[in-house]
Amino acid sequence: MTEERYPINIWVNEERYEKLKAAGLADLCEEMLAGMKVIRVYADEAQKNEILRRFPTAKFDSATTKSIELLPREVKDRIFHKVVEKKSVEILGEFLEED
């Protein structure tokens, strides 16, 4: 059985889209709400719990989207920069180790 994974939704405006395009990741963008683009970085159960512990304002939306929401903007910015730097969305383990 595959382990459950929980997305962090990083909302993508034009500026972010250009950076993702340059990193070859534009195809990973999905449309989530009325055409609004999002790129998803996934956490496993342990990483999800660690994120919720480390950033108390964050919330797991168990009711609707099963995603980790309300991370501080600067944390999301740093996650986004890590995605672009590593040209991958599989960066959460490294991000948590470095943070």
């Binding site: 939704n9 990083i10 989530m32 709400l33 609707t64 989207t65 995603s67 929401e69 309300l70 903007r73």
Partner: peptide, 12 residues
């Protein structure tokens, strides 16, 4: 709609 997701968009 998820209020939490909308707040997340605003926060970003």
């Amino acid at each position: 709609f998820s209020g939490t997701v909308i707040r997340s968009i605003v926060q970003d």
